[in-house]
C-alpha cells in the first residue's frame, strides 16, 4: 500500500505571532518555522503503517517556496521514503493546494492520503476535505485511530459529542487529530540519511494548476486586549466579586 502525506511549513507553535504595524499581515521575518504539528502526526502515522508492514512506500509532498524543502527533509528524517516539493508562492489558498494535491494523487496513485486536520497558521481546517471532494473519494477527518483491515480502513474520529467510527474503501483521505499518535524525534543518523533521499521539485504550472484566489486578505489586527483583572485573596472574596461586582452568579 502506498501512502501520500501532505505537509505544510508554518510558524513554530512556540512562537508568539505579532501583527505588522501596517496591518498587512503577521510578521514572519526571522521567525522560527517548523513542520505543522498535525502534519507531523500524519507523517508519523504513515511511517508506523510502514513499520507494521501495511504500507510499502511513504511519499511526502509540500506546496510552497523552496524553504519548505526543510520541512520535507524533516519528514524524510522521520521515515518517509521520498519527497516532492510543488513550487508555488507562499500562502496559496486551500483550494489551490487541494487542486495541486489532487494532481499529485492522480500521478502517484496512493491508496491512502494523510494530512493534518488544520495548519496552525491559517487555522482553516479545509484542505483534506477539499482534496477528498476533488478526487471523489471518502474522507475521515479528525482521526484518533486508523486501522487497515482487508483493504478497508477503519477510522475513529474525534467529534463534538465523543468518538465516531467509520469504514472507508481505499483509496481514502484521512486527516489527523492530536491524539492519533505521538511523533518520534528524528535521530541524528536518520537526519543524515534523509539528506540523501530523493526530493523532486515540480511547479504548480507543470501540474496544470493556476494558483489564484478569490479571497483577498484586507487587514490583519491583533485581537482586542482583555483589560487586566485583579487578584483576590480568598474564595470568599471571589464569590463576593462574582455575585456583587460581575453579577454572573446568583
Amino acid at each position: 500500500m502506498k501512502v501520500l502525506v501532505a505537509v505544510k511549513r508554518v510558524i513554530d507553535y512556540n512562537v508568539k505571532v505579532r501583527v505588522k504595524a501596517d496591518q498587512s499581515d503577521v510578521d514572519l521575518a526571522n521567525v522560527k518555522m517548523a513542520l505543522n504539528p498535525f502534519c507531523e502526526i500524519a507523517v508519523e502515522e504513515a511511517v508506523r503503517l510502514k513499520e507494521q508492514g501495511v504500507a510499502t512506500e511513504v511519499v511526502v509532498v509540500s506546496v510552497g517556496s523552496k524553504a519548505c524543502q526543510e520541512q520535507l527533509r524533516t519528514a524524510l528524517a522521520l521515515g518517509a521514503d521520498r519527497a516532492l516539493q510543488v513550487e508555488a508562492a507562499d500562502g496559496p489558498d486551500s483550494l489551490s493546494v487541494a487542486r495541486i494535491l489532487a494532481k499529485v494523487a492522480e500521478a502517484e496513485k496512493p491508496d491512502l492520503i494523510l494530512l493534518g486536520k488544520q495548519a496552525i497558521d491559517s487555522d482553516n481546517n479545509q484542505t483534506g476535505q477539499m482534496l477528498a471532494a476533488l478526487l471523489d473519494r471518502p474522507q475521515a477527518t479528525f482521526a484518533s485511530e486508523v486501522k487497515v483491515e482487508g483493504g478497508e480502513l477503519l477510522v475513529t474520529r474525534e467529534v463534538d459529542g465523543g468518538l465516531q467510527t467509520l469504514k472507508l474503501t481505499l483509496p481514502a483521505i484521512v486527516t489527523t487529530d492530536l491524539r492519533l499518535n505521538e511523533p518520534r524525534y528524528a535521530s541524528l543518523p536518520n537526519i543524515m540519511k534523509a539528506k540523501k533521499k530523493p526530493l523532486d521539485v515540480k511547479t504548480a504550472e507543470e501540474l496544470g494548476v493556476t494558483v489564484a484566489s478569490q479571497v483577498k486578505l484586507l487587514k490583519v489586527e491583533p485581537p482586542a486586549d482583555r483589560k487586566a483583572g485583579i487578584r483576590v485573596s480568598s474564595i470568599e472574596e471571589l464569590v463576593d466579586k462574582l455575585r456583587n461586582e460581575a453579577k454572573v452568579i446568583a
Binding site: 487555522d123 486578505l217 490583519v220 491583533p222 485581537p223
Partner: peptide, 13 residues
C-alpha cells in the same frame, strides 16, 4: 488566525 493571536478581515469575490 494563528490561534486567535490575529484577526483577519477577508473579502471574497
Amino acid at each position: 488566525i494563528y490561534a486567535g493571536n490575529a484577526i483577519a478581515t477577508v473579502e471574497s469575490a
